[in-house]
Write a protein that binds this DNA or RNA. Structure first.
Lengths: 231, 231
DNA sequence: CGCGGAGTTGAACTGCGTCAAGTCCGGTGG
DNA sequence: CCACCGGACTTGACGCAGTTCAACTCCGCG
């Protein structure tokens, strides 16, 4: 529960997160209500069914939002990247688990305080609304990726999305990056098995489209072919 | 482009739609900016790439939000039920097609006027935010349904969702209703083929869980078994 | 009456899941 | 330092659920 005070001045997401919509004075006021928390890889922020009394913006690292199908299989519904926001603002209980994929730093608020702030500062509420809309589009993009596409297309599409997220700029993929997801996580996102993901990776490697570098590193050798495979 | 004036007093969704958050005077003011439009089955409200200068709440009928994979296959990303809201508030272009599944009545606004109104009336902006959050949850629920579940579970889950939507109350399914979706639409939502959907329907019927009544009618004989099949 | 679109059904094919080894790697302890 | 272990990942063989392809039925409509 490491609760330090907030240092907004050198926050890496200070002008992309929801709070970037605030004036410096307003932000200071909000910061007084929040605190920093660090999550180790695999640690869960909150679980489905918990009181939804927390919310947070992600400062660094990566989170997953997961559900479980009756037989215990994990389904990943969304990834959260830095500057992303998590927490239920309108429902009494959390609907899904939120778990750190890598060591992560969060800017944590009590939900009631955050709601009060977004009522007081309309620009904050608007920024959150915009963010919810983006989450919706990402969710639909994932839906599109997972529905009725071959295993190769799904894996290629996910790698492309991760490469785009890894390079700061959203439209050209990073040439080299570390996968934040285990094979099991990828399988859970794509609705495949671990084995299928692994096979598709080796297949993409045999075609010289990507190259694995250790368990988690990845080189994108042919971005165009990767995009084509994702079609 | 049938543009009548708005008659909010006897609007069937007057206390469930976003505008229900407004006071009567505020609503009158908003209504002055909007107009009613009727869409025939199959007619499209706007298409991906269009300027996003329109938004609307659905008064009656049903819409689908669709994308197309390269080879022309249709993927349905979401359904819109009465009181639902469509339109991009934060992006310059529409991302997806929006098409009427059945004859539908919409309450139509220009986007700029609607944005102005939601800036002027914070409760309207908040109601839209809440609605976006609900859409997000629905999208994730669909993601969960479509990922790694058997064809039977997907069809059963969709029928259950449609039955719940058809009964006004969201938690007990209607015993009899008309499917707003064609087989092709269902297949497009679930990531299956038309043939698979058809087979699963006959299978559910053989198990006496549902009963088809003409091309579109459906009786839910055993809600509990249907829910079990959707697990 | 004949046409066309939507739906159903059947038979054969195939991509992915399942199961079962096997490999790689980091950590722990002798 | 090496030996051993366990977890994450890879690879192979096989079976099956769902796709594909191809009739065929049903029904509304000109």
């Amino acid at each position: 529960m490491g609760g330090e005070a907030l240092g907004c001045r050198d926050c890496p997401v200070r002008d992309r997160a929801a709070c970037a919509a605030l004036s410096p004075e307003e932000r200071d006021e909000l910061a007084a209500a929040g605190r920093i928390r660090t999550l180790a890889r695999g640690e869960t922020l909150f679980a489905a069914g918990d009181d939804a009394d927390l919310c947070a913006t992600l400062v660094s690292g990566a989170l997953k939002i997961t559900a479980f199908d009756q037989d215990g299989g994990e389904r990943i519904l969304a990834l959260v990247h830095p500057a992303g926001f998590v927490g239920e603002l309108f429902t009494p209980f959390a609907r899904h688990d939120v778990v750190a994929l890598t060591e992560s730093r969060l800017c944590l608020f009590s939900r009631s305080e955050f709601e009060a702030a977004s009522a007081r500062f309309p620009s904050l509420g608007l920024a959150l609304h915009r963010r919810a809309q983006e989450d919706l589009h990402e969710s639909r993009a994932l839906l599109d990726l997972v529905g009725r596409r071959s295993a190769e297309a799904r894996v290629a599409g996910l790698l492309l999305a991760l490469a785009n997220a890894a390079s700061g700029s959203p439209c050209h993929p990073a040439r080299h990056f570390e996968l934040p997801l285990s094979r099991g996580d990828m399988a859970g996102m794509l609705g495949l098995t671990i084995e299928s993901v692994s096979r598709q990776l080796t297949s993409l490697e045999r075609k010289s489209i990507v190259k694995r570098d250790g368990a988690r590193g990845l080189d994108v050798l042919e971005p165009a072919l990767l995009a084509a495979a994702a079609a």
